[in-house]
Design a protein around this nucleic acid. Structure first.
Length: 584
RNA sequence: GGCCCCGUAGUUCAAUGGAUAGAACGGCCCUCUCCUAAAGGGCAGAUAUGGGUUCGAUUCCCGUCGGGGCUGCCA
């Protein structure tokens, strides 16, 4: 049990002793880490919340509560300000909690009480288009959520729902047959496909006769034309090879790659079913789902106000020409995941602009009586310095591969400068860990809902609040352990004396609180901020408290703190998919 | 027009309704005969605006100004 939980339970008893029946049923006082150490380690505002209805002065109530709370092995209590109850955790208690983490692979983090089957839908690039910088967020956040959920004991299914059946294939098929350079295709398939796609795209804008020809190719594909199917499969194959290369550099894997095409046969029956149940109906030739009036108009994803009137904005599930859409595929995918993966939860790591789409999808599931923990884990946009969607000077999007290459190149230069004597293969591995780590950590330390401005210098920075800063604390620990004989041996107990030691122990113990909180809100930046704080505390400790030169119990304690810091940093960064090198 | 998100230091970002709003980069000072200076210590610097709710508001509510997104047959 985490420290805030223990304190909250003890506090509840004290509150009950003071207030008796006046304590509201089910009231659980919140105990949160104090922002400022002058106010202790944890604090509660329960007295201030309860004072009014108990008709008591908050400070008087807090005083009585503290009296009833009595002696605790965990912390000493004091009243402060308008009625805060501050908890100052006893160093011996931090020491015993930290000591308990020493042999514990989970480092104090409990498994969840009720494990769920969670499908995480993320990354999802389109076929025949290389991933660009915009895919960073979904890919990295989604991967992290999967790792977090698994660590906490959930069954996780990661699914890359690639765009392998979209209308872009009309253009690609026409381009393949008419303008594709075969030599180019063999040299760099993805580049070749992309340039074909871009070429046809511009031609379509110039020549209005072209688009119908592309659509014809698409219809042929969708009705099972052998030649087009073969081209389509080749496109998917080469795209996958290119994608796998990036995923492997990022150390990201998927349990499934069920693209849009996998649900092709389910679409027509799904639409029929929805029509049969009266949820969908024909409108202007299309099949649509309209509002069923369940929500207030302001909250209804199927309504929008125009000129003072609430107008219908249906989800179209079949076009007038008989074609199916995004919403149709998503509904079919959801069905499949519930049926085949027994999913209790489906989390979509997709940009914020699609919020309405998911509200509609989830609402249609409600109409069908399908329930589950369906979440749109939304994130903000990546913008350029002009606050417009991020593009290069020539107007192209920046490819993810270029960002990765640049990151590794920069890291290589620093490794070369800092550790010229390191073997070449280790240099390469360190540069990879540092460069990729920098990208991931830059992404994950951001609040996911905020738009952010893409900046090479910031994303690839190697000093400050960055992955290499954390990697460096780990490296410093490892260097210490290389210098002692026989490696680390856990002592019988820890004795915390210096402020730097106590502070480090305080943070180490908090790992158990931070990891579950990070998954609860799907907010990796909480864990990132914690890990940075921990690394910072370690660097301060490292400067203030010599380890190898100390002796006896002091040395044992300091070595244990080093060991725990390394373990927590490695585990925590591992949850981000970031590698910790032994040297750098 | 309506709905959603956003506006915090020179810049880029933090902050479950809590106390003196945290960092990083940049700027200015220190610290390597000491376990990796990819580090540590210090200085200067910010909640767009007007109301409201509250013991307490960057956070919640209403208005104004400014930016972005969405708003029936793309994904």
């Amino acid at each position: 049990m985490t420290i805030p939980k223990i304190l909250s339970e003890q506090l509840t008893k004290a509150l009950h002793a003071v207030l008796g029946e006046a304590l509201p049923e089910g009231f659980t006082p919140t105990v949160t880490p104090s922002q400022d150490l002058r106010f202790g380690d944890y604090q509660s505002n329960a007295a201030m919340m309860l004072a009014k209805q108990a008709k008591m002065n908050p400070r008087a109530l807090a005083t009585e509560v503290i009296e009833k709370f009595g002696e605790s092995e965990v912390a000493t209590l004091e009243i402060a300000g308008p009625g805060f109850i501050n908890f100052r955790v006893k160093p011996e208690y931090f020491a015993s909690r930290a000591h308990a983490m020493l042999g514990d692979e989970r480092l104090g983090v409990s498994l969840v009480d009720e494990p769920k089957s969670i499908v995480i839908d993320f990354s999802a690039p389109n076929v025949a288009k290389p991933m660009h910088v915009g895919h960073i967020r979904s890919t990295i956040i989604g991967d992290t959520l999967g790792r977090l959920a698994r660590f906490l004991g959930h069954k996780v299914i990661t699914d890359n729902h690639i765009g392998d059946w979209g209308t872009q294939f009309g253009m690609i098929l026409w381009g393949w047959k008419n303008i594709l350079d075969q030599a180019e295709l063999e040299k760099d398939p993805i580049e070749a496909l992309l340039s074909v796609y871009k070429d046809v795209n511009t031609r379509c804008k110039e020549d209005e006769n072209l688009l119908p020809l592309c659509k014809e190719e698409l219809v042929k594909l969708q009705s099972g034309d052998a030649e087009n199917l073969e081209i389509w499969q080749k496109c998917i194959a080469v795209t996958k090879i290119g994608l796998e290369k990036i995923y492997s550099q990022l150390d990201i894997t998927f349990d499934y790659w069920l693209g849009e095409s996998a649900y092709n046969d389910a679409l027509a029956p799904l639409v029929e079913d929805l029509v049969g149940k009266g949820i969908a109906r024909e409108s202007d030739g299309a099949i649509c789902v309209f509002s069923d009036g369940f929500h207030k108009p302001q909250n209804d994803p199927f309504l929008v106000q125009k000129d003072g009137e609430w107008c219908a904005v249906p989800a179209i599930i079949r076009k007038a020409d008989g074609g199916f859409l995004y919403a149709t595929t998503d509904l079919a995918t959801l069905d499949y995941r519930i049926e085949n993966f027994k999913a209790d939860a489906i989390w979509y790591v997709v940009g914020a602009p699609q919020e309405k789409h998911f509200k509609q999808i989830f609402d249609i599931e409600r109409m069908r009586g399908v329930t589950g923990d369906f979440r749109h884990v939304a994130f903000g946009s990546i913008l350029g310095k002009d606050r417009r969607p991020f593009k290069t000077r020539s107007g192209d999007t920046v490819s993810l591969q270029d960002v990765i290459d640049e990151a590794v190149t920069r890291a290589t230069a620093v490794v070369e400068a800092k550790s010229p004597d390191m073997p070449a293969d280790e240099k390469a591995a360190v540069a990879q860990a540092v460069g990729i780590g920098a990208i991931k950590f830059a992404e994950l330390s951001q609040n996911r809902m905020s738009d952010y401005i893409f900046d090479w210098e910031k994303m690839l920075a190697l000093t400050g609040d960055t992955a290499p800063y954390l990697q460096n604390s780990y490296v410093r620990v490892r260097s210490i352990f290389r210098k002692i004989e026989g490696g680390f041996v856990a002592p019988a107990s820890l004795t915390l004396a210096e402020n730097a030691e106590i502070n480090l122990a305080r943070l180490l113990v908090r790992f158990a609180e931070v990891v579950p909180a990070t998954l609860d809100d799907c907010r990796p930046n909480l864990l990132a901020a914690y890990l940075y704080e921990l690394a910072k505390a370690f660097h301060s400790f490292y400067e203030a408290c010599p380890v190898l030169k100390s002796e006896g119990a002091t040395r044992e304690t300091r070595l244990a703190l080093c060991e725990l810091t390394a373990s927590v940093l490695k585990k925590g960064m591992g949850l981000f998919g970031i590698t910790m090198p032994e040297r750098m």
